[in-house]
Simulated scan of single mutants.
Amino acid sequence: MKGRVLIIAGSDSGGGAGIQADIKAVTALDGFAMTAITALTAQNTHGVHGVVGIEPAFIAQQIEVVLADLGADAIKTGMLHSAAVIQAVASALAAHAPATPLVIDPVMVAKGGHRLLQAAAERSLIEQLLPRATLVTPNLPEAEALAGFAVANEADMARAGQAILAMGPAAVLVKGGHLEDSDAVIDLLVDAHGVTRFTHPRIATRSTHGTGCTLASAIACGLAQRLTLADAVTRARDYVRRAIETAPGFGGGHGPLNHAVTFNPDWRSL
Rank of each mutant, 00 (worst) to 15 (best):
A216Y: 05
C213Q: 09
H200W: 11
R226H: 15
A232S: 15
A243S: 15
Q225E: 13
L189Y: 05
L223W: 01
G253A: 00
R235T: 15
T211R: 02
Q225C: 13
A218E: 02
G249V: 11
V195I: 15
R241T: 12
R241G: 02
T228V: 13
F250L: 13
P201R: 00
G222S: 10
S207W: 06
G251S: 00
V240E: 05
R237G: 03
F198K: 07
A243M: 07
A192S: 15
R242H: 11
P256L: 04
E245H: 10
P248R: 12
P201L: 00
A216M: 09
Y239R: 06
R202H: 14
P201G: 00
R241V: 08
D231H: 12
A243N: 08
S217V: 05
I244C: 03
A192F: 10
A247H: 04
D238C: 14
R197S: 09
I203K: 05
G252H: 09
A218D: 08
A192N: 13
A204D: 13
A192Y: 11
T199E: 11
R242Q: 15
P248S: 12
C213H: 05
Y239Q: 05
R242E: 13
A247R: 02
T214A: 13
G255L: 01
L188P: 05
R206G: 02
D191R: 03
R202P: 14
A247P: 09
T205W: 14
V240K: 06
